[in-house]
Design a protein around this nucleic acid. Structure first.
Lengths: 258, 258
DNA sequence: TCCCGTTACTTTGTCCGACAAACGGGCAAA
DNA sequence: TTTGCCCGTTTGTCGGACAAAGTAACGGGA
């Protein structure tokens, strides 16, 4: 069954009409001729311009809507919008789960990205960022014995750190992993005594480090914080080399979807 | 117009039928009841099961197809598949461009991620990974005066480094930024004499470091390599704080789409 | 003149029925 | 074994239709 001969020809790919509709509109957007906020016509308008059936236009629109380039506000006109990460991130997370990545992969990546984020935060955090972090920290101190609330606050804490780096690329890069990584804190806080206390302590140290622009201290505490996660995880009896399985994700992803 | 009173009710969200179709199938997949490779019925079959019109089913399918959960092979039956990153990554890149992120953001993030990747590669690269890197390096040496080919090889080199880390989460995290970052090497090689030579030299040093499992040397050269990009970029006369604009991306993204 | 409710029009979401093109598979001829 | 043909299935596209929900215009009352 092995084909000894190399393929001489590419498979011919005929584009469906609805794909061409989507691509045509997409080109207008990525080229800048249509800018976020601009209106695209109504479906009837597009039917007229493209000369295809409304069903065809609608399928094309679904594609664009799905990639976040186009939105429909309250059953009204279509307009261009800048796709925001969060939709894309959760899809990325799902792709990771389905690829059966392991907790170790998550852990290693989180270490790299969270260190990067804290570094940026130390360099660039402004008063507003610090205030938001302090607010989060205060709530976490109040919820130190509530694993569910604490895991949620931890997730948000790290998102705030990333936000404080004022680097949207970094913010985006860490999100798919973060979506899977931090929610597991709940499980850890539940099983490990003092887990919550250590977490809150680390958060406090990190905020102080940012306030004092002390990069070394910040890196130290972030590394410690992420390592704590790993130790805690191992103490729950699960192997760090097992895949993040669907069952786990099912609840998580569902919760993440609002 | 400020609403002093807190919202008593959530806005009621009526889900369209095609959305419910998509969500129903999606739930089956994320819950694991439908696994990659499994077949979903034909459109007619779904029409029967959901009791909606075929147009509605088709719109729902477009949504799933777009998120990469479902594929249609050569005008035949629908089946579940694990969404692979590359489609998602390019959409992420587009989101970044449209958010008008700056080259500085790209640079800082690339520094973090590429250092993470080389660290993983030093720890985990196997003979196959090293062979692939050497092959890439050999070609780069041959193309040292061809900016287009060199930029392409540089992009691939870093993807191979990430691959060698055997960490799919990290591989995914770096891709959206990498898609925008490395192609600019072309511009740099074109403008900066010796730019290509330094790049190829760095690649060689990195491969050696991996082979000898010398983490410090690897980090040193990667940092130098990425810093070189920044210096080269500044020497082209553009500001690193200007946004990655559409015009630039237009050609790039187009080239990335196959 | 300004406010507000009613009315008429527009647009979307869904449905129905239809047809050409492409595919898969079976079968016969070369 | 290869080639050509037939036939049922499935997708892509089409035209037309209608209810619901939005928008805009209109007209009456203060």
């Amino acid at each position: 069954m092995s084909d000894g001969e190399p393929n001489r020809f590419e498979p011919i790919r005929v584009a469906a009409a609805y794909e061409m509709v989507a691509e045509a509109i997409e080109r207008e957007i990525t080229s800048g001729r249509l800018k976020p906020g601009d209106e695209i016509g109504t479906e009837a308008e597009l039917v007229r311009q493209f000369g295809v059936n409304r069903s065809t236009v609608r399928e094309g629109i679904r594609v664009l809507e799905q990639s976040g380039l186009v939105r429909r506000e309250a059953a009204r006109k279509l307009f261009v919008c800048t796709p925001h990460y969060r939709n894309l991130s959760s899809r990325m997370s799902r792709a990771l789960v389905m690829s059966e990545v392991t907790f170790r992969e998550l852990y290693e990546t989180a270490m790299v990205l969270e260190l990067g984020a804290i570094e940026g935060a130390v360099a660039k955090a402004d008063d507003g960022d610090i205030a938001a972090l302090e607010d989060n920290h205060a709530r976490a101190e109040a919820a130190v014995d509530d694993p569910v609330a604490l895991a949620d606050l931890d997730t948000k804490f790290h998102a705030l750190i990333a936000r404080a780096s004022h680097n949207r690329v970094l913010e985006l890069a860490r999100e798919p992993a973060a979506l899977l990584f931090f929610p597991t804190s709940e499980m850890i806080c539940r099983k490990v005594a003092q887990g919550g206390r250590r977490m809150v302590e680390a958060h406090g140290q990190l905020i102080d480090s940012i306030r004092e622009r002390d990069l070394d201290r910040a890196r130290l505490w972030m590394a410690r914080h992420v390592t704590d996660w790993k130790k805690g995880f191992e103490r729950t009896g699960r192997s760090i080399d097992e895949p993040v399985e669907r069952a786990f994700d099912q609840g998580m992803i569902a919760r993440l979807f609002r």
